[in-house]
Design a protein around this nucleic acid. Sequence first.
RNA 1: GCGCCUGUAGCUCAGUCGGAUAGAGCAACGGACUUCUAAUCCGUGGGCCGCAGGUUCGAAUCCUGCCAGGCGCGCCA
Length: 602
Amino acid sequence: MITEKVQQVVDAWASARGLTELPACRLERPADEAHGDYATPLCLQLARAAGKPPRVLAEDLRAWLVADPELADLVEKVEVAGPGFLNFTLGQKAYAKVMTDLLAQGEEVGRGERRPHPRVNLEFVSVNPNGPLHVGHGRYAAYGDSLYRLLVFSGAEVSTEYYINDYGRQMDRFGRSIAARYAQSLGVDLPVPEDGYFGEYVKDIAAVLRDEVGDQYLPVLREVAESLAQGQSDAEPRSSAVGGTAVGAELEQEEEAEEEETAGLPSEWPSDSAVEEAVTFFRTRGCELMLKSIREELAAFGVEFDCWFSETTLHTSGRLQQVVERLLASGEAYYKGDAVWLRTSARGDDKDRVLIRRNGRPTYFAADIAYHEDKLERGFEHLINIWGADHHGYVPRMMAAVEILAGRPGVLEVIIGQLVNLMEEGETRQMSTRRGEMVTLAELIEAIGVDAARFFLVMRSHDQTLDLDLGLARRQSQENPVYYVQYAHARIASIIRNAPPDLVAAVGGDPQVYASPYERNLIKRLDSFSWVVQEAAARRAPHRLAAYAQDLAADFHVFYKHCRVIGAPPLLASSRLALCLVTKRVIARCLDLLGVSAPDSM
RNA sequence: GCGCCUGUAGCUCAGUCGGAUAGAGCAACGGACUUCUAAUCCGUGGGCCGCAGGUUCGAAUCCUGCCAGGCGCGCCA
């Protein structure tokens, strides 16, 4: 509030002095209390352009600020300090005014003005439906969902989306793995393919499908098993690559690196129509079941999506072929060496990329282009994708592709989240969906609960790799800062419960008195909430909300220690209760934006 | 080799796109419950902001080079 007022006067002053190129007049909270409640280095920044010493500018501006009657009412004094800082000390009225303003905003305190444009599409998680969510995915789920809530609260129009990679060889392997477990459970020794999925969850899916179809697919799989037994002499074990730890990363992708392209099913399995049909069944149903479980797990984690988009539909609807044809027609794509390429190198990529392979099959990239075209056609004006750091090499080509589709740059924004480093009692632990070695999100939630897990996963910058030691997390969950914040909320709820009804009813109607530094610090913190929201949204940095919530809780706990509410003289009591009420609302909002509950008692 | 991210207290990390004496939590030590919830509060100790230059009134922040760690660089998905 003070910031806006000061900005007005500064603008007037600047235009009167003929100063343009004005940097934003930031009011900072100085570390040293001797420097007032707020300070700005504006004049230092302006000195060069103005051709005057900063202190001279500051004195001049100070005169303007002091002369403004409205500002003079709020600010006790303005001082020129140091090399040219302007320090503001707030007066009594400023605190009452801020509080009146915050109270009037009710539950919506801090919410930004609604901006219907640009319509934003936010895609995140998008885990392949061939295994359970692990904690790495959990980080993107927590981050993406908090970002979504934050963007909406800051005023943006946002829709969330999960892209289902339910097409391609990865899914075939998944289907064959389920088929093998299905056969095994019925007494047929059909081994899981070497490039298949070995996790226990595959057996669970197989058991469900066995209940669904009985032994319907057993004969055909028995034939497969016999055929494999005959020709197994040339099978050689593939070395098991061990990559980094993996969060959005799927190790299986590395392991297939040198593999030959094959059109249909992998070579070991006979490729007749009956086998294909069986595999299709297990793949399709397995994918559905896996997706269902992923969906339920995310919902339990507090994460829901507006749209679940299937990659397969891009292939079956013809959209993929159509977009490639359009790109060829416009000259953005071309034939070379029997393959179709896209001119991404003309738009910042290292080289052009293949859309349609020599063998006629489209690349994953081509499907992604069709997908993003679909997003644009659905009316989205800004596309945000959250990817793991292991996909950052893919960014330039996708940016180029969307630039071509949209006809202008800047439509696609890719946020790269760093990975989660899994540790077990200090030892690095490798993860692989294929081998079924992972710490699942469900495990983490079971160990420390949704609130602590979400807070932990989102409280650090997404640009920072995150170390997670499950054993340590379990032991230290009581130290999770989320409880510190929640406790402040519960304490306030308790005060409100214990307060006389007439006191609660009177809140907001009284003139307010805030004289102590504990009350004033809390008010200043609350006053900055809307700025924090806008800043966190603009920088795609929900972790700032976590930091803010901790600061706010700390300010409250100190206030609580020193300032009694119930039993204080009536005017003071209602003023303080108002402060409690606003604090409670802001804490609850912060926690909600982080997907964390705000309990009334602990 | 090239590209992206990171390097801040013993540990985990903030640091408001260049501001005043670099912050918090945990860990260590010492205090505070007869009062609205002690999951709290108060105090103490702890730092070549990876290293070296540069830009300027001013650098953890911007630029260059180096060092270290993570990730990536397919007609894989």
